[in-house]
Design a protein around this nucleic acid. Sequence first.
RNA 1: GGCGACGUGGCCAAGUGGCAAGGCAAGGGUCUGCAAAACCCUGAUCAUGGGUUCAAAUCCCAUCGUCGCCUCCA
Length: 464
Amino acid sequence: MQIYNTLTRRKENFETLEPGVVKMYVCGPTVYNKAHVGHAMSALVFDIIRRYLLYRGYQVKFLMNFTDVDDKIIQRANEMGIDPFDLAEGYIQEFQQHLKDLNILPATINPRATQTIPQIISMIQTLIEKGYAYPVDGDVYFRVQKDEDYGKLSGRKLEDMQAGARIEVDSRKEHPMDFALWKAARPNEPFWESPWGKGRPGWHIECSAMNLAHQGEQIDIHGGGNDLVFPHHENEIAQTESLTGKPFARYWVHNGMLQLSGEKMSKSLGNIVSIEAFLTQHSGDVLRLMVINSGYRNPLTFNDEVLEQTERALDRLHSALRPALPNAAGASEQMLQTLKNQIAATREGFVASMDDDFNTAGALGYLFELVRVINQARAEGATNQELQAAQDTLRELLNVFGLKMETPSTEKHQAAAFIDLLVELRSELRKQKLFALSDTIRDRLLDLGVVIEDSKEGSTWRWK
RNA sequence: GGCGACGUGGCCAAGUGGCAAGGCAAGGGUCUGCAAAACCCUGAUCAUGGGUUCAAAUCCCAUCGUCGCCUCCA
């Protein structure tokens, strides 16, 4: 199995620190507002990676954090006149529900910045002792010049960054790129007691501390959006590796940004489609399939046309899971052999694609080939029993992708007997060539979400 | 200005040295009372210009274009 590593900018063979176990950490959201579909994309990417690792027999320890204290949370809470911790808690609950709705497996642990304060303080103390950090007026800064390979993840040099820096330089800092590990509390801000006075952690240190606390000094996969490469992940590396003297993560994995009308979707740009809004219009499977249908490292095109196309593609996947035609007489030996061969070819192609840096789009292509052959076999009269192995394979691999492939709900089930009755009566009308009436029944049922399909063997119906 | 990524049929998108996956849409056909679904058939030489090679979408150089990061950001 090969994984693209941002640190080396190429694909590398995947070897874990401990055989059979993957320690994985993904940067979660800062919970100061509703999450949008870009956050969902990232969560989906790493959920799919995790599911595939599980499929390949790994045990996966999966952490995703919540940044639940920072400037924006405090600012927003003050504007709304509520407690910042309550604000954060509300958005955390909401995000957890979104993850569930998107069929994302729950994390092994969801650490939070506010629950890791003692570890953060102790980490900062050690960094100060080792000369990698220095306190100023209740703040503590990381000393980037002390870290010789600072910039290795993002491929930047300190000199280059100084040249292009657009930030206002804080004269108390030794170097413009030094970043805060600890921030002194201002009036009306939440704080914790520390050796440097009342304050709260900086943004980057929490992830380092959470990993140290829950995973140890080294992890296998560290993930997040590619907008986190610099400065967030760069700084995580600087902190952790300065402390431990060991490589932090073996593989740095970054997903591309979701693009709305050619731009990154982000809270600051204001071009947001919230997960909540999306899920009122579409199933979670649709967004998941959009993610699957393209490379996780590339930008993901998100617009109404692509959404519509993905809905149709999802319909096609569903089509292969439909039962045999009524009165199916059985398919030819040749057809059954083709079906059997395609099952093997699909399995093989799926794994080969996914082994190559989680090439979901390539793997999906093989699934569609299986779809075609299943539908061919059904059209030639294959029975449910003859279709079973292929459909089971398809279901199994769709499940590796995390697609739910749900169809009817229980309340609809209660209507099934009545629909059966209508379809039966309609068949009688058709025999009597009372087509106007039978078409009316078909149209009216379609309005109610029931699709009737006729064949020479009889009529079938399904939920739209 | 610095660093990086990308540009494949109408749309989305794999492939990254050896005759260009897949999905959506479109056109034609089979089936059907009609319809729907499904099935069958049809289309790209890979931004542009050079170069390397027996061979390039795939490597190198240049140009144009798009996007990301350099500030909070999945």
